[in-house]
Design a protein around this nucleic acid. Structure first.
Lengths: 212, 212
DNA sequence: ACCTGAACACCGTTCAAGT
DNA sequence: ACCTGAACACCGTTCAAGT
């Protein structure tokens, strides 16, 4: 039962498995070495350091992103499909996805979703320069939404009506009347619905911009 | 020359100063204690741990956010002004702002910008439930944009035309034709302009939604 | 070429001991 | 009530030594 030889790819793969299972904060060189049946120092023969592993994780997540789009559907539905791919990647790799938003992504894996999005925007009728601006807005919204979803606490299901009433009184007394009025809607968070509400608002903005 | 007594507020303030000056990664209990002329363990008398300090930093950044809005301007300009306040907070406290996007913000400092945004949306004509969805989209976009801006590498000013040409060839050969076509626009990043492009697209979407 | 032991300079946190 | 010394269980990384 000989172990396969170590390589950068095997190290990154093991890191992704570890992070998927136990979270980003439990990724350490020693822990990862242990996972691969090797001492921590051996990893330095295949990656330049921990930062390199984090870059590799971000790339690995993007590489697994499904950018295939049904050519028959509207550009609006293509944007929705791409947004859905991002959310699938985020929920499949919650620990590692955070890295995607924070790190620069120049590798080929990072370029695939960018190419896909630019093609959609070209089809919609935007010129190259405008498409780049829209692309950056899209990425900002998608990563901002998903990182927030991933770091959010699990939603509380049952709400004590007494606690609710006193909380609303406290908010009003503190001068937060708009929050008090919206308290019942703030208490409910359906992350998936929330995400697609934003995606649709984004698309609505694009449609209006095309018209005007 | 007696030092003022330690307190949670003094600890958080010192942490913010340290993070502003040397970045989030140089914040440690030992380093922070040193800054306050005290051993690291003393800090535990005033905060419950490092996580508590990070929460405090996020709150401190939000507490410094300017939510005053000129009542005379349109709701669109009010949204732009609030977005500008967020960006000012981000560039003033680049290290700590990252924490705002990742942490849950239930404190009063976190509620102020939320109240401001909900009031603007009410003025624009949205009902409470829709306003909450829009608010979450706004926060996702703003934090996503600003975190990306803060972690981006400094923009390269001069571009070697030869390197540019070969890079575009490589992109085309690798099947990234849309990226190749947009390469010149991708090379230029004016973070401020990019940010307000997104804000305006967001506003355009809201206007269209009000009409339809 | 790849792996390891020992070491360095750090971490966050606990706790008994001091004042 | 607050501060400290010593300790515990960790970190990432370097480097000479092994095979």
């Amino acid at each position: 039962m000989t172990r396969p030889a170590l390589s950068r790819e095997r190290v990154i793969d093991a890191a992704l498995t570890l992070v998927d299972r136990e979270g980003l904060e439990s990724l350490s060189m020693r822990r990862l070495g242990q996972q691969l049946g090797v001492e921590a120092m051996s990893l330095y023969n295949h990656v330049s350091g921990k930062a390199d592993i984090l870059d590799g994780l971000a790339e690995a997540v993007l590489a697994r992103l499904d950018v295939h789009l049904d050519p028959a559907v509207s550009w609006q539905d293509k944007i929705r499909a791409l947004a859905r791919s991002f959310r699938t990647a985020a929920t499949s790799h919650p620990g590692a996805f955070t890295l995607v938003s924070a790190r620069q992504l120049g590798s080929a894996s990072g370029l695939r979703p960018i190419e896909a999005e630019l093609l959609i925007l070209h089809e919609a009728g935007f010129d190259a320069e405008t498409s780049v601006h829209i692309l950056r807005t899209f990425v900002a919204f998608v990563t901002g939404s998903l990182v927030r979803e991933l770091t959010a606490e699990p939603v509380v299901s049952g709400i004590d009506p007494v606690a609710r009433a006193t909380r609303i009184e406290v908010l009003k007394a503190a001068g937060f009347s708009a929050i008090a009025d919206a308290a019942d809607h703030i208490a409910i968070v359906d992350h998936e619905a929330e995400y697609y509400f934003g995606v649709d608002l984004f698309i609505t903005g694009l449609e209006a911009q095309l018209r005007g």
